[in-house]
């Protein structure tokens, strides 16, 4: 009935005839939503139906009993004690702790390096500025995974061993690991020592951890540098001029005047970068560091419990992201309030 509304006979004005539902402005949105919801429901029901049917056929219906069975595999480097006799859930927990270890140290390291790089891009020294820029452009345009395997296979695995290892006071870097001084045997401060050609120290980190941490920090720092640079650039130029006219040096101006204001812009950007660092830590598997993902992969291969393992993995990473977001939102509120 496509007809120009201005032509032809019709009821007198004021007599509103009912509007058909497919043209009703309040009904149509609900019809559209209903259609979308129905499509989504049908697709989800189809997938879930298949899942249940296929799992039943394979005898793999969702259970969590297997988590209590002995794992049968070992993890070379753990903070939580673990061995092959302990159940799967202990293994997954050890993997999670390993993930948290690299995420937390990575967050601290990349924030420090990234902030320094971001500040350096405002230096008066053109060479320093150019070098920072080059670093960011190089790192951002090369895949992280490629960088990680480079750090591991090319840098860390070609470190010398024994007496030829890189030695600094309290720190030794060798192919067999990173050795740090610390308290041992009661309360004695002990540095790394070479015993029978093998380094010993209170604290040993594996090269796998070292390569992963270095790679993650080098990569994330480039992105954080951009966030910091953007935050500093967002502070009006007048602030620099006002501070230097009061006699503050470049460094004082940056620390006391500009950075506190820039934090408002920087903190939300950091949130994104921290979450992506947490997710990127799952690339540990490429350099042989046993994180949560790597334990989950082994678990799946041994138990065949695809659905449960995938659900556990996704749930854990989503929870980790949420936790970081909550922390950063708290920090954000702090920064914003201090402004007023």
């Amino acid at each position: 009935m496509a007809r120009s509304p201005s032509v032809g006979p019709s009821p007198a004005p004021g007599l509103v005839t009912p509007v058909p539902w497919w043209r009703h402005r309040r009904v149509v949105p609900w019809v559209v939503q209903g259609a979308v919801a129905l499509t989504v429901l049908v697709v989800v029901a189809f997938l879930l139906g298949n899942l249940i049917r296929n799992l039943t056929a394979a005898g793999l219906l969702l259970t969590w009993n297997w988590l209590g069975q002995p794992a049968g595999f070992d993890i070379s480097e753990t903070l939580l004690p673990f061995n092959a006799e302990l159940p799967y859930w202990r293994g997954l927990a050890a993997g999670l702790v390993n993930t948290l270890r690299v995420v937390i140290t990575g967050l601290v390291g990349s924030t420090l390096v990234g902030t320094l790089l971001g500040m350096a891009s405002f230096s008066g020294n053109a060479l320093l500025r150019g070098l920072t820029r080059t670093y960011v452009e190089v790192v951002r345009n090369i895949p992280l995974l490629l960088q990680l395997v480079f750090w591991y296979f090319v840098v860390f695995l070609s470190l010398p061993n024994g007496t030829a290892a890189l030695q600094l006071p309290g720190v030794v870097l060798a192919k067999s690991g990173l050795y740090l001084a610390g308290f041992g045997d009661g309360l004695h401060w002990i540095g790394p020592q070479l015993q029978n050609g093998v380094w010993q120290a209170p604290l040993r980190l594996s090269v796998e951890f070292g390569a992963l941490l270095t790679g993650l920090i080098a990569y994330t720092a480039a992105f954080i540098a951009e966030v910091v640079r953007g935050g500093i650039a967002a502070v009006p130029k007048g602030q620099w001029e006002a501070a230097s006219s009061l006699g503050l040096s470049w460094w004082q101006t940056l620390i006391k005047v500009v950075l506190p204001q820039a934090l408002r812009v920087i903190v939300p950007g950091l949130n994104t970068q921290f979450i992506s660092l947490a997710k990127n830590s799952s690339l540990a598997v490429a350099v042989g560091y046993t994180d949560l993902y790597s334990v989950a992969e082994t678990t799946l291969n041994q138990t065949g419990r695809a659905v449960e393992v995938v659900l556990l993995l996704l749930g854990t990473y989503l929870a980790l992201d949420l936790f970081i977001s909550l922390l950063m939102n708290g920090l954000n509120r702090l920064v914003q309030i201090r402004e007023r």
């Binding site: 201005s6 004021g14 509007v19 043209r23 009703h24 402005r25 309040r26 149509v28």
Partner: peptide
């Protein structure tokens, strides 16, 4: 009522 057309919830009328 605009130019003889009563404003209603009819989407086609709104377009018109």
């Amino acid at each position: 009522c605009v130019d003889g057309i009563v404003l209603s919830d009819d989407l086609r009328q709104i377009d018109a």
